[in-house]
Design a protein around this nucleic acid. Structure first.
Lengths: 290, 290
DNA sequence: CTTTTTTTTGTAATTTTATTACAGCTAAAC
DNA sequence: GTTTAGCTGTAATAAAATTACAAAAAAAAG
């Protein structure tokens, strides 16, 4: 999360080991300085060794010290226009409207900045070359899978979407080489979905997951698209993660579309025109009135 | 100023020497990538030597390459580095990722600012008092209706979602007083959906629509939530409007939740705990490995 | 058109920075 | 008191950035 590295740090402070806490304290003391300091300088100030600082960064989910500095630097930029807080009992309509939209916007912004373009690119390549594509999602991710079905269907690839446990297991077992199975989950811990992914992998499918890194589902993946947005799922059902998943799928679909090249656009035009008869034009609406 | 490193770069482009211009062009092409790249990578991409990149950074007033990356990273945080344009053939992965996310963010921002809070508030009131709620969507709005089902189900109200034409007509005809029928459509012109809405109205249901104003569907509504986001549906299937619809439904669900008052939260806790057995905890994952 | 001067660029060496591998230490569990 | 797991630091290695210097290109002068 770009918005809250420091807060996150503050919270985790008590759970850190002695040396790592020293590092955290130095960073909290003067974050502006840290983003320009080398790992050696920081280690000296915190009176720990350099690898300790490095491990500290890793434990925060960064790839290393430079990555940590980068994220810290970005989080220190002032000027998040609205402070978005959780919805509270007693909020009026305008308040909760704004809070929910702002939370969605923030999560997309964060996702955009942390998105691994290489991973997207790899997945696009596999989807493009796939014999067929299947989407898997349960609960709130079920509709996301259905949406992906709808979108990829237009790309003239055999696509399917499975949103219940039994069908998922069967579809997973039926995979053939060059099939791509894409699993969508907010938690990454839904047992049934993890098992289905395992079956898919054993059946020879290329397994892509859109979920949190460091989860059982992520471990099953040949290709992981990491979505690490934090949200309160205690009371509210996942809201923002779903939007991020959908947008990532938009991105993948677009990537495949671009990979297919310009000649493909005529196919889309044909699809489009097939829908023409289902729409009411302004003239028809008027005619109906009389 | 720090806000405009990229613009500054764009302006200085003609005044730079041949090699330095190559560097600048690579950076402008994909700034997100540059902030994570090493000087060697960048030099290779620009087909110049490493010291050239370094000198380039110095000429921009930075103390060196790392300093430049830092400033670039910070300038990329706020706002849009480029005005978001449509995806084009030939865009690389980073480019279309950014364009798609930015388009989504922009549409949510627009929707947040133009949202009619009074309309939301009225709809929340009706949904709160409803005997039952049905969601109707076709095509890309089908998954949106399913998502709404999933979300409102947690509110302990009888809910249904209909995503095919025949079932929609039957459900519309079966409406009873105090039922709320909510129709979701991007175009607002899908004949089948407009007809279903008409049937619902004649059956005595309260009809809410989430769609464009000034469309046939909007005319059927007792209560209209106007979503007037413009997007190119010629080639791409609706992307951003769908996100706005979902977020509006989040808002409505939240409104109903708040209207139900604090006593309701125990119900949600019960739902939550019913899912506990379906999740893998970290400890279980480890256990499975042995 | 040549020569000189200035600017630009690249090569190679050096320094700085970050990461890895491994060993020692510490604290908790047995 | 021994064993174990988890921290932590040292030293080696790898990667990255910078510097010094020389070659090449462009511009200016003759």
């Amino acid at each position: 999360m770009s918005t809250a590295i420091l807060e996150q740090l503050q919270q985790h402070l008590p759970h850190l080991s002695r040396s790592e806490r020293k590092v955290a304290e130095i960073i909290l003391e003067d974050p502006q300085h840290c983003i320009r300091a080398s790992i050696a300088t920081l280690a000296k100030q915190a009176e720990v060794s350099e690898p300790t600082v490095n491990r500290f960064c890793r434990s925060l989910g960064c790839s290393g010290f430079p990555d940590f500095k980068l994220q810290l630097a970005q989080s220190l930029v002032k000027g998040t226009p609205f402070v978005s807080r959780d919805v509270e009992m007693g909020d009026n309509c305008s308040q909760y409207c704004q809070k929910i939209f702002q939370a969605s916007i923030n999560s997309l912004t964060d996702a955009m900045q942390s998105l691994d373009h290489q991973a997207i690119s790899n997945c696009v390549e596999h989807l493009h070359r796939a014999r067929s594509i299947s989407f898997f999602g349960l609960g709130a991710s079920g509709p996301v899978a259905m949406d992906a079905l709808h979108k990829f269907f237009r790309l003239n690839i055999p696509v399917q979407a499975w949103t219940d446990v039994m069908n998922q297991r069967m579809a997973a077992a039926a995979a053939q080489p060059n099939d791509v199975h894409l699993f969508i989950s907010n938690t990454g811990r839904t047992t049934a979905l993890v098992e289905a992914a395992e079956i898919s992998k054993n059946s020879g499918a290329t397994v892509i997951t859109i979920t949190h890194a460091d989860t059982p589902l992520a471990q099953q993946a040949h290709h992981l698209i990491d979505v690490s947005c934090s949200e309160d799922t205690e009371i509210y059902t996942p809201m923002v993660s779903r939007l991020v998943h959908l947008t990532i799928l938009d991105t993948l679909a677009t990537g495949v579309l671009l990979a297919k090249g310009p000649s493909f656009q005529s196919h889309l035009k044909r699809l489009k025109s097939s829908l023409a008869g289902t729409r009411l034009e302004a003239s028809e609406v008027l005619a109906k009135k009389h």
